[in-house]
């Protein structure tokens, strides 16, 4: 319990820092902008890390996360298609994109009786490239600016919450909250799955059903997240590992830990992205700079 209190304090420090640090002076308008950033940062960072933790648990693969599985980029692709058709990035299209690409990646990685771990990541990364290219094509066709494409592909927390989009964003946050709790129910299943599919099946877990539930629900969550803040990589990769180091292997404890740490990490990354250069970098630049070395470390370790 004291660990949660400690991490909550770190989280609050991150919130405080991301509100006070920035190039502009802290006026009421700027304060409002920064608070809306904090809300989106907590929302996106928490969801990405939580989903990463769930997916790593299900696949027994430490390298799996929405980004390396290709579903984040798939969501960006779906979102950009929606933008071309209706002029706005809808979570529905992003969800369908995440689902489609995720399904494709599984089909590639699937072998009789299971999934090839390395092939899953390879297929995910390759599909991610393809999706990014297609996003560029679609956005240019749709007459969008380059910076919009960059923000969609690498993440951007600067979406201003206004009276026009407030209801929509609140609705998405509420829906995401419900979906997170729905996934959290499976903490015991994930503990057991870490000891192999046979053990899990022998204890009465319906692996196929659980996989479908997790696959669909995480795709929905990724769709919602990407449609608001774009595809931010590596939060879902790094954070669950740190959470397990702090809170231990039990998913009952490390999944909420992942949410809290993911929110903290993304807020700090965003603060760095805002102040490191005169231009505001997409937040995904910072998360990748930390995430890729971490990925290589994990890859060599296993």
């Amino acid at each position: 319990m004291s660990k949660y209190i400690l991490i909550s304090l770190v989280f609050l420090v991150a919130v405080f820092l991301s509100i006070i640090i920035g190039p502009a002076e802290l006026t009421t308008d700027i304060l409002q902008l920064r608070i809306s950033r904090v809300i989106l940062g907590v929302f996106a960072g928490g969801i990405l890390a939580f989903c990463g933790g769930i997916l790593q648990g299900l696949f027994g693969n430490p390298l799996v996360e929405p980004y390396t599985l290709g579903s984040a980029s798939g969501a960006a692709l779906g979102g950009s298609v929606g933008m071309l058709l209706f002029g706005t990035i809808s979570p529905l299209f992003a969800f369908l994109g995440a689902l489609g690409v995720g399904f494709f990646v599984f089909t590639i990685a699937r072998i009789e009786g299971g999934l090839l771990r390395d092939r899953l990541i390879l297929a995910g990364v390759v599909m991610s490239f393809l999706c990014s290219s297609l996003v560029m094509v679609i956005m240019v066709l749709g007459g969008r600016e380059l910076y919009e494409i960059l923000y969609l592909l690498m993440g951007y927390l600067g979406v201003v919450i206004t009276s026009a989009n407030r209801a929509m964003i609140i609705a998405m946050i509420v829906v995401s909250g419900i979906l997170l709790i729905y996934l959290y129910r499976y903490y015991r299943e994930l503990d057991i799955i870490s000891q192999g599919m046979e053990t899990a099946a022998g204890l009465g877990i319906d692996i196929q059903k659980l996989s479908v539930i997790i696959f669909l629900t995480t795709a929905l969550l990724i769709g919602i997240t990407v449609s608001i803040v774009g595809a931010i990589g590596f939060v879902g990769l790094i954070v669950p590992h740190i959470s397990k180091l702090i809170f231990g292997p039990k998913h009952l404890k490390n999944l909420p830990g992942s949410f809290l740490l993911g929110a903290t990490f993304l807020l700090l990354a965003d603060t760095i992205a805002r102040v490191i250069t005169v231009y505001e970098l997409p937040v995904g630049v910072v998360t990748s700079l930390v995430g890729v070395p971490f990925f290589i470390y994990l890859y060599r370790k296993k």
């Binding site: 027994g60 015991r188 299943e189 503990d191 057991i192 870490s194 000891q195 192999g196 046979e198 053990t199 099946a201 022998g202 204890l203 009465g204 877990i205 397990k244 292997p249 039990k250």
Partner: peptide, 24 residues
């Protein structure tokens, strides 16, 4: 069911693992 081989991907304690038998 006791499978032929069990991998322990996460480092649970013994009593945590035995408690998993209560899952059903």
């Amino acid at each position: 069911f006791v499978p032929q081989e069990t991998h322990f991907a996460l480092n649970f304690t013994i009593e945590e693992i035995v408690m998993m038998g209560r899952f059903p």
